Computed example of a mutant assay.
Amino acid sequence: MILAYARGPPIAIFAGSWLCTKSPVDGTPVALGEPIGDCENADRLAQLSSLATAVYMIKSRGVKVYYGGSSPEEELAAYAGGADGTLSEIKHRFGVPDQADDAALLVVEADSLEELRRYVRRAGEVYRRRVEVALLARFEAAVELGQYISSFVITKAPDIVSFEPATSLPEIGRCIHCGVDFLMYGAKTKRCIYCGRALRGVITQRKPTLRPEILRAIHRKLADNLPKKIVVI
């Protein structure tokens, strides 16, 4: 089924290439309204892309993000969004203990800035050394408190992204410099009509190796230098 990005923020992060015959590479930013591939299970694809997009949005606030769920597919989606790691990879504990231990990461739940600050202060009093405090909360809370936290643990994401059926899948050429996606239903162009730079293909049959370090590297390459908006023409 050919799908298009129907609802969500102006730019989402695609994840779930293993559900598609043609699609963007996992970690690719996609623009609202444009076709995204020939894929099955649109609902699952939306869940994975929502998680990747949530990670991307939180990290854009300068916050480290760790995936704390148990789904292998969603772990890959989190890495496609730029996640810094998973809880299983780092020595952590939930809450702040009464006595210091060898934990490198403390995972706390807080619904307000005041509660979060109390946890951070208590962690300093107990450990007397640098220890990372990560907030485990709803995505909306992470967005709201993003300027006050250094780390966040995400286990799931709300339905940020949705896809809908489309009738045709064109080639899409992206100008990274101008932030323009050219939808080529007929005549093909290899260079941006505005700056003359070579276009980068968005839709491909190529599948990345599904390993965390590969997906993180792809995300950095494709998303870090992208303009804040992509215009589709």
Rank of each mutant, 00 (worst) to 15 (best):
I58Q: 04
T86G: 04
V65I: 13
E73P: 00
K59C: 02
G62A: 11
A54P: 04
A46M: 10
T86F: 02
K64N: 14
A78G: 05
S60T: 02
P97F: 13
P97T: 13
A54F: 04
S71Q: 08
L51H: 04
R61W: 01
S70M: 11
D102P: 01
V63R: 01
V63E: 02
Q99D: 12
A54I: 06
A80P: 02
T53C: 02
A46F: 05
K64V: 08
T86M: 03
I90T: 13
E73C: 02
K91F: 03
V63H: 02
F94D: 00
A80L: 09
M57W: 02
F94S: 10
E89A: 09
K91W: 00
L87H: 03
E75I: 07
A103C: 12
L87V: 02
Q47V: 01
G95K: 14
E75N: 03
E75T: 14
K59R: 15
Q47P: 03
E89I: 00
A103T: 08
L51T: 00
D101P: 04
R61I: 00
L76M: 14
Y56I: 00
I58F: 09
R93V: 10
L87I: 01
S50C: 10
G85T: 08
A42G: 07
A83G: 08
S49Y: 08
L48A: 09
V65H: 05
S71Y: 07
S71V: 02
A42V: 06
L48H: 01
S50V: 03
Q47A: 09
V55L: 10
A54S: 12
A52R: 03
K64M: 15
K91R: 13
V65W: 04
I90E: 13
L51F: 01
Y66R: 05
D98W: 12
R61L: 12
G81C: 11
A103F: 03
H92L: 07
G62L: 10
T86H: 08
G69D: 12
G81R: 06
T86Y: 01
V55D: 07
D101G: 04
L87Q: 04
Y67K: 12
S88W: 01
S49A: 12
V65G: 06
Y79W: 09
G62D: 09
V65F: 12
D43C: 01
R61T: 03
V96A: 13
A54M: 08
K64F: 07
A78M: 04
Y56M: 09
R44A: 07
H92D: 13
Q47Y: 03
V55P: 03
F94H: 13
A103S: 15
D98Q: 15
D43M: 11
